[in-house]
């Protein structure tokens, strides 16, 4: 009997360190410390941890927006930040801001053109994504008038306009009401159904527990634990939030 196929890694981080130097007089701050992770293709992967644990830094390194001080990061084998890696990535930063004067449709067309799409293909893709994100009725509205939930959904739509294989979402649920979280969760699940790999950071642990296949717990730039969500919550069906609070102190109540 042949061994079960090893899942392809969409993203790998190997011994990644990242130091920031706030000013030349101050010592550098280590945001990531020898982080090694392998994110399987086609899964939803959650990065959780307290503020300052290095989640957003890790995502920005994968997106090619930051260079690691040491170690390496690859996206389907291409070095992060390279043209090959960028073509396969979509990124939603935390609290995204769109040019206020652009309509949702114009912004998607702009992002699509920057990613190499054009003409009828792009126009069709933009309309399809606006409908998918529940923004068809607001397609011609200026993004400056959008609610937080609408802006986040538009943010997810711009991240996938060029149909990337990997979608990076930094705190997508931040500031959303329960209805907004529900809508966003639907979108994230849809991305997985389309065969994409999703990596998201969030402090909203029920959402992580609900949508993620695997989770990595970071603390002070180091990987504390990584595994399937079931390994964190236990066979008795505990809550991820309970595990998190046990790790970092505090009470579930």
């Amino acid at each position: 009997m042949s061994p079960p196929p090893v899942p392809t890694a969409a993203v790998t981080l190997t011994g990644v360190c990242k130091e920031f130097r706030p000013s030349w007089r101050r010592p550098p701050v280590r945001a990531l410390d020898a982080l090694t992770l392998s994110i399987p293709a086609g899964q939803i992967f959650g990065l959780i941890g307290p503020n300052g644990s290095g989640k957003s830094t890790a995502l920005k390194i994968v997106a090619g927006l930051l260079s690691p001080t040491a170690g390496e990061c690859r996206v389907f084998g291409d070095a992060a930040g390279s043209a090959g890696a960028k073509a396969r990535l979509g990124f939603l930063p935390e609290a995204p801001h769109f040019p206020r004067f652009l309509t949702a449709r114009e912004f998607l067309l702009y992002c699509g053109e920057l990613s190499g799409l054009a003409g009828g293909e792009l126009a069709g893709r933009a309309d399809e994504l606006l409908a998918w994100a529940g923004l068809a009725g607001a397609a011609e509205r200026a993004t400056g008038t959008f609610s937080k939930g609408m802006a986040q959904r538009l943010g997810v739509a711009q991240a996938v306009v060029h149909a990337p294989d990997v979608v990076l979402l930094d705190e997508p649920a931040s500031g959303l009401d329960p209805v907004g979280v529900r809508g966003l969760t639907r979108l994230i699940r849809g991305l997985k159904q389309d065969g994409r790999t999703v990596v998201l950071t969030s402090h909203f642990l029920p959402q992580i527990e609900e949508v993620c296949d695997r989770v990595a717990l970071l603390h002070e730039g180091r990987l504390l634990r990584e595994g399937a969500v079931g390994e964190f919550v236990g066979p008795a069906g505990g809550r991820l939030e309970r595990f998190y609070l046990d790790q970092f102190g505090g009470s579930a109540s």
Partner: peptide, 13 residues
């Protein structure tokens, strides 16, 4: 400041 650049620079740009 508004992180718009992050969305643009994570693309081919």
């Amino acid at each position: 400041e508004h992180r718009t650049a992050q969305m643009l620079l994570s693309r081919a740009l």
